[in-house]
Amino acid sequence: MLEGKFEEASLLKKIVEAMKDCVSSCNFNCTENGISVQAVDNSRVLLISLLIEKDTFEEYRCDRNITLGVGLGSLSKIIGNGANSDYLTISADDDADKLNIIFEDKVKDKISEYNLKLLDIDADLLDVGPMDTDATITLPSADFAKICKDMKVLSESLQIIVTKDSALFQSVGDIGTGNIVIRPKTDIDHPEESVTISLDKPIDLSFGSKYLSDIIKATSLSQKVTIKLTDQSPGVFEYKLPSGYLRFYLAPKFDE
């Protein structure tokens, strides 16, 4: 038996919205420690790794490990029926073929209950393992989203060049070029506005704008995003949850 109660339905809504355009369905792996997902997009360029730790939930129990195959579009439709501020409880019996979803309005005496049919998904997992990191940038997630959107008007690729004291985002396209430079900044009054850059080795990587557009759909999950970059390796884009994370691993482009 799995049962997890979210204080607010909005959290699961945001998680599903951030994932559903990249992968259509995935397995939710439920253990006593929480719920995790690993899923790769069809083109095998972008990998999503989600961890919702037990502490994220108002109440959580999982007596036995269960894997729930979920169609994210369908889940999104059902979750969309609840108000953001509702309590949201998901539950499933062991060997269940459906996921039970209950919304409780905190003010009105109203409870809405739905069942989502589960899918049998043949998971095709990748061993991500611990990765070395040459450069780490932390910046406001909204700023990163704007950079990606702004640069996308110019090119299908976004080049990220990190040096000791700056990160340069650059796009070169048919209509012209664009550059955005950000530098470390400590904002004591508004720590969420701070920018940090730590560097072991300079970085020059290019990523597909299309995939970055998918990644920034997670912006509402966290005020900050942490970008971990390593030469000739996938970039890691991490949005922290209250307890856990949503991470994207994006394969870089290469020069032909």
Binding site: S43, R44, V45, L46, G208, S233, P234, P252, F254, E256
Partner: peptide, 14 residues
């Protein structure tokens, strides 16, 4: 010109 790499190049199947 640049091409897109696959994650399979970096991560092995589990």
């Amino acid at each position: 010109m640049s091409g897109q790499q696959s994650l399979n190049r970096f991560f092995s199947a589990r």
